[in-house]
Amino acid sequence: MSSRHYLFPDDGEPLRLSKRLVEGLIFGKDALPQYAGTRQKVASIMLEMEGAKPQRILSAQGAYFVFDATGDIRRGLTRSAGDILNAAYSPSEANGTVVSLHSKLTKKRAEEEHRWTVGKNELDRIAADIWPKSSSDRLKSVQGVSAKRPPLTFDARLALDEATGDLWKIAHAIDELKEPSLKGFAYEARTRGEAFPEHRHLYQAIAQMADERLEIVRRRRVGKGVWYAVVDVIMWDDNRVGTNVGRYHEECSGKQAAVVAARKLLAEHAGDFAENITVEAEVLTDLEWHERLKSVGD
């Protein structure tokens, strides 16, 4: 299977959204300033493939992208996910068998505000782009603001996979060390980098990793400085694969204040808990928090 994405502006022809651009928008690495301050219809298409050739459209889902003043969609996505989640798990009547009229109306409003139905006209235009009969059938692509990355050749991908296959072992080994060992590890790594200049950049990198881990361990021991209380709302599918549908945080002064704030956030969002949704809390140093933002998107 493969997915395609299309933007349907109020005026003009639909436009293609590349997978790279959509992922960049979702994780805050790209933006569309040309649509700043607007609400745009986007269709996500799932295709059945045979090799590299699309065979048929399996499904089509319409959603709205709400762009802020800079062309960023993350706030709109967070609001959309929260509204749909709250509507999907709104309380039923006390007898447990009849869903209240209020619940039905809430779900209907959430769907109308954040979803739209991809009709025959839209599907016909998308199909013409996927299986063009002439050059005019091809739709133009939307351009984001991030630089286009160079193509990754098969040889480059193979070399990168081979070179980085066991990188996880480095972080795992460093995470197991205590403070005195981390100091010795970083010093020795830099010393070996001087002795083996052909690998000095690699030794410098693992020494820096040890330095960062040492600072986190020290801050966790001392408990002072800037800390963050974090609560994640995670939806789990049948295969126990989780999707983060909500993240709430509060900046605090010191670890104990972060623990108190985490308890408060847990209480505030306990209503999001459901059969397939967990509400999880943790406290992080500012170093861990900023690293978390880099890895999963703000």
Rank of each mutant, 00 (worst) to 15 (best):
A205Q: 06
L15F: 15
M46S: 13
L284I: 03
S18D: 06
V99T: 08
E288P: 05
S141E: 15
T38D: 03
A171N: 02
G119N: 15
E93L: 10
V233P: 01
T285C: 03
K120R: 12
D137P: 02
I126Y: 04
S44N: 02
G271N: 14
V260I: 11
A163F: 08
E48C: 11
K224A: 11
N121A: 14
Q55F: 14
D272N: 13
S135C: 04
R240M: 14
I26L: 11
L7Y: 04
I130K: 08
V118Y: 04
V230C: 08
E215M: 05
I234E: 05
Y187I: 15
R221V: 13
G165P: 10
Y203Q: 04
A63P: 14
L177I: 01
E250Y: 09
G193R: 00
S90Q: 03
K148Y: 08
T278Y: 05
E93D: 12
K255C: 08
Y64H: 14
L202W: 12
I26D: 10
V42C: 04
E268T: 15
K29I: 01
D72Y: 13
I206R: 03
E179P: 05
L77T: 12
L293W: 13
G144Q: 01
S59V: 07
A205P: 00
D238P: 00
D129S: 13
I277T: 01
P180E: 01
T106I: 07
F273T: 12
A163Q: 10
E112Q: 10
I84E: 14
A156F: 10
R220S: 05
S146M: 14
E13S: 13
A205G: 03
A210H: 04
D237C: 01
K104P: 00
E288R: 04
G246Y: 09
P150I: 00
L105E: 13
S2H: 06
H199N: 09
A81D: 07
I26S: 11
E288A: 05
S253Q: 15
A81L: 08
A210P: 05
A171L: 02
Y35I: 00
R39L: 09
L158I: 04
R74Y: 08
V99N: 07
S3Q: 14
